[in-house]
């Protein structure tokens, strides 16, 4: 025995404490890893100018036509990818105001965190998508979304205006995709292109020279529900 009791206890203690600390450092390292949409070159985002929005709901109609979003005329089943809400006015006689609500394409999307099948995911360029082949329709994401941006398809749909995209069938969660098929081709989303009042601006937030980054840099934009800390990609001006 070349070790006295004291060194033995010291060594043993060191090993125990070391084995307790090491996994903690692993977590620390993991938390410093790159988060999706944060440091990548492109992060697609949108700025909605509420001063220009008149509540004409052209964006809703255009979105339905572009993405085959079903409309049944029944409030319980209707799916919305973008919906124009009326802001309630406190003062009598105040002008009517409208706010287009769509998926905010959060960097820390709660819908992605809760998804049991990993059907929801954040793409490298910040777009949050649903893999509809993988979705089982459990509706966790619908509950988790702080913006109510997701719709479950409750009925089989015959809406099939755009044959390039699949028709929506029963039992999946769907949401705004920023018209990802158009964005990949380098075209703006349909609602941005067709808005008659130019209230919507689409672009790359991480590129300081883009139009949208300059609007955000002015400092007059806000995000909805900032207390949720989900880092949305949609900004509102004149809220």
């Amino acid at each position: 025995m070349g070790m006295d009791r004291r060194t033995f206890l010291k060594l043993g203690g060191a090993i125990v404490i070391g084995s307790m600390i090491t996994p903690g450092t692993q977590y620390l390292l993991a938390s410093q890893e790159k988060k999706p949409g944060e440091k990548s070159k492109t992060r697609w985002g949108m700025v909605v100018d509420l001063n220009k929005c008149t509540g004409c709901k052209v964006c809703e109609k255009v979105c339905r036509e572009e993405n085959n979003v079903p409309f049944y005329g029944n409030k319980r089943y209707d799916a919305y990818w973008i919906r124009v809400a009326n802001i309630r006015q406190e003062l009598p006689g105040a002008p009517e105001r409208y706010i287009p609500l769509l998926c905010q394409h959060c960097a820390d999307a709660p819908c992605v965190h809760v998804c049991v099948t990993k059907a929801s995911f954040v793409r490298k360029d910040g777009i949050v998508l649903v893999d509809e082949h993988r979705c089982i329709g459990c509706r966790y994401c619908v509950v988790a979304c702080p913006y109510r941006a997701r719709s479950i398809i409750f009925r089989n749909s015959n809406t099939w205006t755009n044959k390039e995209l699949p028709r929506m069938m029963i039992g999946v969660a769907t949401k705004c995709t920023f018209c990802v098929h158009r964005v990949d081709k380098g075209v703006e989303p349909a609602c941005v292109e067709k808005c008659p009042h130019n209230a919507l601006t689409f672009g790359n937030i991480n590129d300081p020279n883009s139009k949208i980054a300059k609007i955000i840099a002015e400092g007059k934009t806000q995000v909805l529900r900032p207390e949720k800390l989900v880092r949305p990609g949609v900004f509102y001006k004149g809220l």
Binding site: F121, K124, D125, L129, D131, H133, V180, H181
Partner: peptide, 11 residues
């Protein structure tokens, strides 16, 4: 092809 297009956007 479906996975690569949907997940990674390699259209």
């Amino acid at each position: 092809a479906r996975v690569q297009v949907v997940r990674n956007g390699l259209r």
